[in-house]
């Protein structure tokens, strides 16, 4: 049986750690300008970035740091109300990757955004909008 030497093991642990934190790094490195286009293509039909403007989905203005299901005037699903999520870049990343996995029973009709770079860009854009 072959055992990796300590240097290889350290490299593997580092690589695994890097993979594990990839979403965190990715959104930090996102490009807001590209994210605006991603938002236009993926999100804008159902979400506005104007405060108080709800569509089929709630306004995403100031979403970072907001507790889920708290936008006034929007009728959330029971699942979202019970999710106890406070939106952070990491939570947003996980949610838009697979909405139904993070909030089973939620009503957002969106399969998910697989492209990690697109997610990083759109999150950077969300964070840039005041």
């Amino acid at each position: 049986m072959h055992f990796p030497n300590s240097r290889s093991l350290a490299a593997a642990v580092f690589a695994a750690s890097a993979l594990a934190v990839t979403p965190f790094v990715a959104h930090a490195n996102g490009d807001p300008a590209k994210g605006e286009k991603v938002f236009a293509g993926e999100c804008s039909d159902c979400h506005s970035l104007t405060a108080g403007k709800n569509k089929k989905g709630p306004s995403l203005n100031g979403v970072n740091g907001r507790k889920a299901a708290t936008v006034a005037g929007f009728a959330y699903s029971d699942a979202m109300k019970a999710s106890d999520i406070t939106w952070s870049p990491e939570k947003i990343d996980a949610y838009i990757t697979r909405p139904k996995k993070v909030v089973p029973g939620g009503k957002m009709k969106y399969d998910g955004l697989d492209d990690e770079k697109d997610r990083a860009d759109v999150i950077a854009y969300l964070l840039s909008v005041k």
Partner: peptide, 24 residues
């Protein structure tokens, strides 16, 4: 009803040609 702009459901923001969102 949906709070959405016409562009969400209609190609060219007008008329009957539907986007995927409009089809659904």
């Amino acid at each position: 009803q949906t709070g959405q702009a016409c562009t969400a459901c209609h190609i060219g923001a007008f008329g009957p040609q539907l986007t995927p969102n409009g089809m659904k």
